[in-house]
Amino acid sequence: MNNTITETNFNFPGQQSVYKGKVRDVYALEDSRLVMIASDRLSAFDVVMPKGIPYKGQILNQIATKMMNDTEDLVPNWLEATPDPNVAVGRKCEPFKVEMVIRGYLSGHAAREYKAGKRQLCGVAMPEGMKENDKFPSPVITPATKAEQGDHDEDISREDILKRGIVSEEDYITLEDYTRKLFKRGSEIAAERGLILVDTKYEFGKTEDGKIVLIDEIHTPDSSRYFYKEGYEERQEKGEPQKQLSKEFVRQWLIQNNFQGLEGQKVPEMSDEYIASVSERYIELYEKITGEEFKKADVSNIQQRIEQNVLEYLK
């Protein structure tokens, strides 16, 4: 799969450091700017899969860019430009060490906790008598602490965040306010496309002049779960699984092939056919979420393309 980008080793002018995440590589420049490259790496259960997914980085980067542009009237964000389909350039920020997870529906992790008998998640009460994928009376914020490398993110309550001094109360009130505003707008955008924004996570940082801004990605299939609106009610009434638009289909395939990221488990072999099908699903996600046709970038030499476009922009 030489038409994917799974590793980067660039040396841009004024480069100070490189941070390599599960999916994105972030290059810090001396002028307080960051060059963030969305790779084609696929991560599930906190494990990066051995093969890349064609066009995945482009898809995530372009959805995030579009959604940041569509919400910047509500919440300021870090983004300055996207000089390449896989690249975002923006202001350097000090990230908050919490992920702001917001849930409109009892799905995924929340549903698993509920099934296990818990009626509180991150200090937030969940009503009795709910079934999986039911809508909450109003969206609930269930933060997670950002894990140090390799560890899983952990649920944390608002009280613990403040008690441990992870975020000041003044800043946390802003984070909650921004999270609710973004989720409301994201839900409205989804509804226009015949989708339901089920849950998502937002990450925030502080600029050098102390301004809180939205960073990383927003409303992508890697950070969010979507259902199709059509047939949602009928499926709930019949107790059927919802039709999803998210990375969940990859997780389900891995579970069926006996992999959940647990010790001693081996990542199942992904055939070229399977990888092509995952790529097609991501393209479908892009088109549904944005309402636009996906235009494949030239992938004959991605490394060279990215380098040229970034150098041209930095001039």
Rank of each mutant, 00 (worst) to 15 (best):
R281L: 11
V98Q: 01
S246E: 15
G52K: 00
K206Q: 00
M100E: 10
R24I: 12
M130R: 01
K295T: 14
E203N: 13
L182A: 07
T290P: 01
D272W: 08
P76R: 05
A44Y: 09
T82G: 11
V213C: 02
L175D: 12
I275D: 01
P83D: 10
M67K: 01
R119T: 11
E233R: 09
M1N: 08
L60M: 12
E287R: 01
F204V: 08
H109M: 14
A190M: 10
E230Y: 04
T6D: 08
E234W: 07
G104F: 03
F96L: 15
I5A: 00
K20Q: 10
N77W: 05
E169Q: 11
I37C: 03
C93I: 10
G129P: 05
S32Y: 11
M100N: 13
M49A: 07
K92A: 15
G123Y: 05
N11L: 10
Q244F: 15
T142S: 01
S277D: 13
Y55W: 00
T8E: 02
Q260A: 04
I189F: 03
V299P: 02
F204T: 02
P83M: 14
S271I: 15
N9P: 03
T142K: 03
R119Q: 09
T71G: 07
Y202L: 14
M49D: 04
E148D: 11
H219E: 07
R91A: 07
L74W: 14
Q252L: 11
W78H: 13
V98C: 00
E217S: 15
E287F: 01
L311V: 01
I63S: 05
L195W: 07
A276D: 08
L42G: 03
T220F: 10
S17K: 09
V140R: 08
D134P: 06
F259G: 01
P139G: 13
E240T: 02
P83G: 11
Q304K: 10
P127E: 15
K56Q: 00
D84M: 08
C93F: 03
R103H: 09
G14Q: 08
T200I: 13
Q149N: 13
S279Q: 03
V278W: 02
Q265R: 02
S43T: 13
A64K: 06
K243I: 11
K115S: 11
R91E: 10
L245Y: 07
E312G: 06
I141D: 13
F259P: 00
S138D: 14
D155T: 02
I53G: 06
S271H: 12
S223Y: 14
I302Q: 00
N2Y: 11
Q236G: 14
I275V: 14
R225A: 14
K20G: 06
Q303C: 05
F45K: 10
V26G: 03
E234I: 05
F45C: 05
I283H: 03
L262C: 06
L314E: 10
D216M: 14
T65V: 08
K211C: 00
K206E: 00
D298W: 07
K115M: 12
I302H: 00
